[in-house]
């Protein structure tokens, strides 16, 4: 799966790719044929937020001008990378989010849609931002945003934390329609609806302990 995703990304860009293995039981393996691919491995599983922070930190160390985050389960379409990086390249935004709700083509499962609508209201109340899809894994940010945004929430609450950081540092953000492919694999790897309760408490406790 992973190597397929890398292959698909390689078809649209020659950019440096950083893969973060978040403590998988069977360590990830990247085909030797790929050029400019780094594999980082967490010895134990920390969560998606921690994996993103590790990858972003390493990209900055390598001197990246721009960072794109891309879920490795195959749910994103590499063709969307061009659209999502464009506002960063033309300096219209510091960070760009992919949104599965701005396009019309997507088949988002009903329960998922309800939960995301609730999360959206929650975010709006907390930050005042009307974002349609903060929990989209496809994001692009310039070096400034990647440097100032500190992700300390190891698990899924990082999506909300990123919004807090945008507000704190007054970053310019934008949303761009993207495709999401719900494959059986990505559905299995994705968040179960019950997990949203845990995410909610992580966010509340994050606010409480700041």
């Amino acid at each position: 799966m992973l190597n397929e995703v890398i292959k698909n990304i390689r078809q649209v860009t020659a950019a440096h790719i950083i893969v973060v293995d978040d403590g998988s039981r069977d360590p990830l393996y990247v085909d030797q044929d790929f050029k400019s691919v780094n594999l980082l491995r967490h010895y134990v599983n920390l969560g998606q937020g921690a994996a993103l922070a590790t990858g972003i930190q390493y990209a900055l160390q390598l001197g990246a001008d721009m960072v794109v985050t891309f879920d490795a389960d195959g749910q994103h379409d590499p063709k969307d990378i061009a659209a999502i990086t464009e506002p960063v390249k033309s300096d219209q935004a510091d960070i760009v989010f992919g949104s599965r709700f701005m396009g019309t083509k997507n088949q988002v499962p009903v329960l998922k849609r309800i939960l995301i609508a609730m999360a959206r209201t929650f975010h709006w109340l907390l930050t005042g931002y009307r974002m349609t899809d903060a929990h989209n894994g496809l994001r692009a940010m310039n070096r400034k945003a990647a440097t100032v945004i500190r992700i300390t929430e190891n698990r899924m609450a990082h999506a909300t934390e990123i919004l807090f950081e945008i507000k704190r540092h007054k970053l310019r953000w934008k949303e761009v329609p993207v495709n999401i492919v719900y494959t059986p694999y990505s559905q299995k790897k994705g968040q179960s609806p019950a997990n949203s309760i845990r995410i909610f408490f992580d966010v509340v406790l994050h606010k409480l302990f700041r």
Binding site: V30, S36, L39, L40, R41, H42, L46, T54, Q57
Partner: peptide
């Protein structure tokens, strides 16, 4: 764990 991961970054 992050420092360890970055230190042992495998490159192709």
């Amino acid at each position: 764990i992050r420092q360890e991961a970055i230190k042992n970054a495998g490159t192709h």
